[in-house]
């Protein structure tokens, strides 16, 4: 089936829950209401004409600081050889959505990853823990307004050495964004010496 047919079929079944369909996009994507997320996914998987048995990818994204979060899945069907993407927008404060782990087992880890990096809570997920960051990490790193914590168990997190101030490089407007990760300050042409030992 073409993406348009798939979208029509979903639209017929769920009516208002389908917010929009973008057939012009590189990967045609159906935007749905997060309330109906699980039902639409279940329909896509179990319907005899659609049979999306392969969840290729599940990713979260962020529209920008202060705006909404999003979640998108790319589906493929081995028997029918067609594909579609489905996405939903979630509020930034307390984003919740129903887990689709019971439909595709692979969503288990993908959802844990989105929870870890974006803080989206998947209701009904059996084991929602952080997966890539440590369990007691603070904040959700991939959000646009994320600020890295200063210390983690007494280890300084941002890479910074207590060396003498030298900031022309850091003032470079294009480089400003990188400071949080790669800040290192050196005196001009002198031999760099640590002023004092960084605290552990």
């Amino acid at each position: 089936m073409t993406p348009q047919d798939i979208a029509d079929k979903v639209q017929k079944q769920f009516g208002d829950a389908v917010l929009e369909f973008d057939a012009e996009a590189l990967d045609p994507v159906i935007k749905v209401n997060p309330e109906a997320w699980f039902d639409i996914c279940e329909f896509l998987k179990t319907d005899a004409d659609l049979e999306f048995d392969n969840l290729v990818c599940l990713s979260g994204f962020d529209y920008g600081a202060g705006k909404e979060l999003g979640i998108i899945i790319h589906l493929y069907s081995f028997p029918k050889r067609h594909s579609i993407a489905v996405k939903a927008d979630l509020p930034r404060e307390n984003p919740r959505i129903r887990s689709i782990e019971s439909l595709w087992r692979t969503a288990d880890w993908h959802e844990r990853e989105v929870f870890d990096l974006y803080g989206v809570v998947f209701d009904g997920h059996p084991d929602l823990r952080r997966i890539l960051c440590p369990d007691d990490w603070e904040g959700y790193p991939l959000r646009k307004d994320y600020e890295v914590q200063e210390f983690y168990h007494g280890i300084r997190v941002p890479y910074k050495e207590d060396w003498e101030e030298f900031d022309t490089f850091l003032k470079n407007p294009r480089r400003g964004h990188f400071v949080f990760q790669f800040e290192r300050t050196l005196p001009a042409n002198g031999n760099a010496k640590p002023k004092e030992k960084p605290s552990p």
């Binding site: 001009a188 042409n189 002198g190």
Partner: peptide, 17 residues
């Protein structure tokens, strides 16, 4: 570790300053 930073400028530090 500071020896891994290679200085290529030909100006003496005081002159550069």
């Amino acid at each position: 570790r500071s020896n891994g930073i290679y200085h290529f400028s030909k100006y003496a530090p005081d002159y550069a300053a």
